[in-house]
Amino acid sequence: MFTTINPGFFTTIQDEGRWGYQAYGMPVAGAMDRYAYRVANLLVGNKPNAAAIEMTMLGAAFKFDDEQLVAICGADMQAKLNGASVKNWSSFIVPKGSELRFEYAASGCRAYLAVRGGIDVPSVLGSRSTYTRAKVGGLQGRALQQGDVLDIGQDIDSEAGPRTLAAQYIPQYDQKVTLRVLLGPQDDMFPAEAIATFFGSCYTITEEADRMGYRLEGAKITHIDKADIVSDALCFGAIQIPAHGMPIIMMADRQTTGGYAKIGTVIGPDLMKLAQAKPGDSVRFEKVEEPAAVEALRAERQLYLQILESFKPKTAVLSESLQRYYQVNVGGTVYSVAIQEVFE
């Protein structure tokens, strides 16, 4: 059990999302940055779908009633445990009675706090994700408030202890992001010049950027005829272009259907970059074909396996045949030295 001392700017409970009900108009919600969310759960040995806490721009503060193993990933919100800095992208023990405080995001936009066992709130339509617009999921369907008490669940997958993620798995959040885009489904509603403008220009994220969608501004993208379509389904990353010609990228809390032409879709593995981008940051789009997009997805899945592998204890395997013996003379004294290669 732990208590919210300060809720921060917009702090919600999220998991992988509420899949299976979009046909009923129910948005998916779920973690905006699935990479940071997933790695946070891996760091504490949770199941991939365990509910974690997502903080936005300005972090929250919590007081822990019991000792817990927690992990922090994503935006660097300068976390402090009882006043002492703790490393981002790591898991650590929070002793009983401790305070864990997050501040302003020094880099990135969304930070994830995973607690071993996951956050235990009721599962609604198969998910614990908070969708605030319909007051569904999470804690009473809303963002956390001061005084909210959270229970710990049992979504444990494997043994875990304090760990730090190897540097090669830690993304650097840049204020300039490039997003790979697969054209469609309505790219035929745009002239070739407009598609060239879309891929050739730099767009800025406006203040209207939240869990539902990111509005961008920059060079106008024109339509051949009209911008409106008979509404069809919107996936995570769908890029709508309304009549004003400025892109809107649909995010985790997007409504299930939309009525503007969609020029393309940001590929799944690149959405984490956008989820960590803030108003004022710049975005460029890069055209990819389907095989490259599928390959990127494969690489992302591979990364989770590699990370899990990197947590396994390193057991040295000694092989007699690979032992080498040397005599080393140091300052007149001769030493016999045996050297073995160690394999992981």
């Binding site: 489904p185 309505q186 069809d232 769908a238 879709t265």
Partner: peptide
């Protein structure tokens, strides 16, 4: 049959 990202297929 149209693309909606690498994980979406639209039957229009």
């Amino acid at each position: 049959l149209l693309n909606a990202g690498e994980q979406g297929l639209v039957v229009e």
